[in-house]
Every structure is written in structure tokens, then in C-alpha cells.
């Protein structure tokens, strides 16, 4: 642990956290490839570090959502029945999956995330954002539980939050208003990430010298991002983030092709 590497990690966390908060994504999708590619961290350690930063941002932002009564904690707790199972099972099998396959799954996940962002930007042009939440009936619990299981498994396997899987299912299929779906998903992410983080911790894949500066950076970055978001043209930030994601995905593909992923 050196002072220089500590500072660089804090800056990386800060950038990922602030970009993510403006767009509404966790920083995990940037943090993990950066740690694996440029800090030459073994993939499980990059995932462990990301999981702890995901817990920090989810906890801080959901405290605000809960206080404003936007998150539906009953729905969240119900769906946690399956996110935690998915997260635990995935974290248990993660170390026996070949790093190269994990890397390819991660690239696929970056692709899916970039696609979701683009689609969201496209539909946001016409749709008014909802301000008031009216009464709603939650339907299709089995589907929600299944989607949450998948989201949990992605979280345990790849170290991401999995909001991009849960939010559309809650909003489109379960009848949950978008604002509530986003807040509830965020509320669940802390428990989901913690479940797999314990397993990574037990295996020694949560390294203080990486996690501490990263969490401080991501935490302060996401606070700044959340403050700046209403004042920024989110479209430019979304394009920037999509560009960064595509760049990292290509770099990871090249690294996997040359066999250099730790």
C-alpha cells in the first residue's frame, strides 16, 4: 500500500462514482475493468472491491429514498428472498469459473448496460418524467422473484449492483411506478452485495489497500454526482459513459484474447 496508488485509486473511484450517479448507474461497471486492466488486480479482488463500494453507495442513497418514503421496503424485502439466494450461489461458484469466461460475461454485461442506457435516452425524449406516485397494485411476484434471482446472481458473479435487470422488470411487468422501482432496487442492492461480499471476504478477496481508497472515492463522487445531476445535460454524460464503457469492453476483449487477464 503506497501513498501514490492510494491517491490514484481514490481518483478512479471518484470519477466512476460521480459519472455513475449522474446517469443512475453504480460505479461497478467502470471500476471492475479498470482495476483488472490497469491495476492488474486478480478478477475476484476487483469484484470484491466493487461489491464494497456498491454497498456504500446503495446504503447512502437509499437512506434518502427511505426517508422520503419512495422505496417500498415490503416489496424490497420480499424480492431480497431471491436476490440473496442468487448472490450467494453465484459467489460460491464464482471462483471455480474460468477467469476468461467471467471476463466474457462481463463484456456481455457492459454491452447490455450500454444498450439499456441508449434505449432509455431514446424513450426519455418523449416521455414526461413522473413526479407524483399514485396507488399501484404489485403483480407477478413469481416473475419478480425470478428476475431478482438473476440480478443477484450477476451481482455475486460480476460485482455489479444488478439494478438494470430489476428496475425494468418491476416497472414494465410488476406494475411498480418507475420512481418506486428505482428506489426499491437501490434499497435491495446493499443486502444483495453484502451477501456475496461476505463470501469474497472469507476467501481473502477484499483487500483493504484497494477497498479503502476506492470506497472513499466512490462515496464522495456519488454525492457530488447526485448534486450535479439536475444541473447537467445528462445526455452528454450518458454519451461519455457509453463511450468509456465501450472502450473498456474492447480493452477487456483484447486482454482476454492475449490471455493476460489475471
Amino acid at each position: 500500500m503506497t501513498l501514490v496508488s492510494t491517491l490514484i485509486l481514490a481518483v478512479v473511484g471518484f470519477l466512476a462514482g460521480s459519472l455513475g450517479a449522474v446517469v443512475g448507474l453504480g460505479g461497478g461497471i467502470i471500476i471492475i475493468p479498470v482495476l483488472a486492466l490497469y491495476f492488474h488486480l486478480p478478477f475476484p479482488q476487483a469484484i470484491g472491491a466493487s461489491l464494497v463500494s456498491v454497498i456504500a453507495t446503495s446504503t447512502a442513497t437509499s437512506s434518502v429514498h427511505v426517508e422520503r418514503h419512495v422505496a417500498n421496503m415490503k416489496l424490497g424485502m420480499t424480492l431480497e428472498l431471491s436476490t440473496t439466494l442468487g448472490a450467494a450461489l453465484a459467489a460460491m461458484v464464482a471462483h471455480s469459473i474460468h477467469r476468461r469466461i467471467l471476463g466474457m460475461l462481463f463484456i456481455a454485461f457492459i454491452g447490455y448496460s450500454a444498450f439499456s442506457l441508449l434505449r432509455h435516452m431514446w424513450s426519455a425524449r418523449s416521455r414526461e418524467t413522473e413526479t407524483e406516485v399514485s396507488a399501484y397494485t404489485v403483480r407477478r411476484y413469481p416473475l419478480g422473484l425470478a428476475a431478482s434471482f438473476v440480478a443477484g446472481a450477476f451481482s455475486g458473479l460480476l460485482g455489479v449492483g444488478g439494478g438494470l435487470i430489476k428496475v425494468p422488470v418491476m416497472y414494465l411487468f410488476m406494475g411498480v411506478p418507475l420512481r418506486v422501482a428505482t428506489a426499491t432496487s437501490n434499497f435491495m442492492i446493499g443486502v444483495t452485495a453484502a451477501t456475496s461480499a461476505y463470501i469474497y471476504y472469507g476467501r481473502g478477496d477484499i483487500r483493504l489497500e484497494v477497498v479503502v481508497p476506492l470506497v472513499i472515492g466512490v462515496f464522495s463522487g456519488s454525492m457530488l454526482g447526485a448534486r450535479l445531476a439536475p444541473r447537467l445535460h445528462a445526455v452528454y454524460v450518458q454519451f461519455l459513459l457509453i463511450g468509456v464503457m465501450i472502450f473498456l469492453a474492447v480493452q477487456m476483449a483484447l486482454r482476454i484474447a492475449s490471455g493476460g487477464l489475471n
Partner: peptide
């Protein structure tokens, strides 16, 4: 689930 899986997983 969280407690049992973390004990098992470790």
C-alpha cells in the same frame, strides 16, 4: 439466507 450462505460460502 444471508447468515447461512455466508457461513457455507466461506
Amino acid at each position: 439466507i444471508v447468515i447461512v450462505s455466508s457461513i457455507l460460502g466461506i
